[in-house]
């Protein structure tokens, strides 16, 4: 399920089956010329990623819009803001909350987060459209899917 009218319509009728939330954490900045390409690339890859996972397990997963934040922002403050998202979600019967990110900074504050952090070691560059990249993403999606299933 995605944050889309048609999906939410279905969600309302099948709430009891959809118990897992997936929140992509996407850092954003335009202040540093050296890293902005890399950040944008990772954000692209992450959206391919999360869409694929949602595709495979759409009957039990709700994919939220990206949680965007400034790369330079205070991490503890961000955790707090992110948790307000989780509190809102918990008004619905969601049992599992997963955060997916390429940003290792979250790892340090994992304990304070109200959910399971899935940190993916970053892909720095490459071509999103070539075959090897597809195979790589396929592979990783499968493994993350397995991880999520192990929580069910």
């Amino acid at each position: 399920m995605k944050w889309k009218k048609s999906d939410l319509n279905q969600y309302k009728q099948a709430k009891e089956y959809i118990d897992t939330i997936l929140i992509p954490l996407v850092p954003f900045h335009l202040s540093n010329d050296n890293t902005m390409e890399k950040s944008a690339f990772q954000s692209e890859v992450l959206s391919v990623f999360t869409n694929e996972i949602e595709n495979e397990l759409s009957g039990r997963i709700m994919l939220t819009p990206n949680y965007s934040y400034l790369k330079s922002a205070d991490q503890e403050m961000e955790v707090e803001r992110l948790n307000t998202w989780v509190y809102d979600l918990q008004k619905q019967p969601f049992n599992h909350v997963f955060f997916v990110t390429f940003d290792a900074a979250w790892k340090k504050n994992e304990q304070a987060m109200q959910g399971t952090l899935v940190w993916l070691p970053g892909l720095h560059s490459g071509d999103l459209h070539n075959k090897e990249m597809h195979a790589l993403i396929r592979d990783q999606v499968e493994q993350i899917g397995e991880l999520i299933r192990s929580y069910w």
Partner: peptide, 8 residues
């Protein structure tokens, strides 16, 4: 596509 809620 699963006929229940569309999983794979």
């Amino acid at each position: 596509i699963c006929k229940h809620l569309g999983c794979f």
